[in-house]
Amino acid sequence: MNIDGLRELGANVDEGLERCMGMEDFYMEMIELGLSDERFETLGQTLEAGDLDNSFEHVHALKGVIGNLALTPLYETICEITEHLRAREQMDYKPLYEKLISQRNAFRS
């Protein structure tokens, strides 16, 4: 992935770069680390187990990481999951989680 690819996927690259002091290499390294965060997988496990409290903790942490990287489409899905979990909604989270992972994979390619 490169800067142009990030833009094509809807990332707010200018905002992300600003947070990384304009250092493109550092920004790209932070994106790689953020997208590799083990909380993506742990979130899937806790959602599948119906553990809304731990799911909220994981998704809320991801919200901060992905928000700071300005990966807008991914961030919006994370926000949607976060709000459902904040309200402790008993629902099928699988479609939202699958969307999240699909978006993450798009940013990783």
Score class of each variant (00 low, 15 high):
T72A: 08
L62I: 04
S36T: 12
Y27K: 09
E76T: 07
G64R: 04
N12I: 03
A106K: 15
S36K: 15
H84Q: 13
R88H: 12
Y97F: 15
L96D: 00
E18Y: 09
L52Q: 14
E29M: 02
Q90N: 12
L85R: 09
M21E: 10
D37Q: 08
G34L: 08
F40W: 09
G64T: 10
M23H: 11
E57C: 05
D14I: 02
Q103K: 06
S55I: 05
L52E: 13
M1S: 14
L96G: 00
V59Y: 09
D25L: 10
M91C: 09
L9W: 04
E24S: 04
G64E: 04
L33P: 03
H58Q: 14
Y93E: 03
D37E: 13
L85P: 09
E15F: 11
E80Q: 12
S55F: 06
R88D: 08
L52F: 14
G34P: 08
E89C: 11
F56H: 05
L47G: 10
H84G: 01
D51L: 04
E8P: 02
V59R: 11
E57Y: 10
L69F: 08
H84D: 10
I101G: 07
T72K: 12
L100T: 05
R19Y: 06
R19Q: 00
R104V: 04
Y93R: 09
S102Y: 03
G5R: 09
G16S: 00
G5S: 13
P73W: 02
P73H: 05
Q90C: 05
S102H: 10
E18P: 00
N12A: 13
P95G: 09
L9H: 02
G64W: 02
S102W: 01
Q103V: 01
E76F: 00
G22R: 06
E83D: 14
Q45W: 00
G22N: 12
G10W: 03
I81G: 11
L33E: 14
E15Q: 13
N54E: 15
D14W: 01
D51G: 07
I66R: 01
L6C: 05
N105A: 07
D51Q: 09
E38C: 08
L33K: 15
E15W: 08
E32C: 03
G16I: 01
R7A: 10
N105F: 02
L71F: 02
A106N: 14
E89S: 13
R86V: 02
L35E: 06
A106D: 15
P95L: 06
E8M: 12
V59L: 04
P95H: 08
R19H: 05
L100W: 01
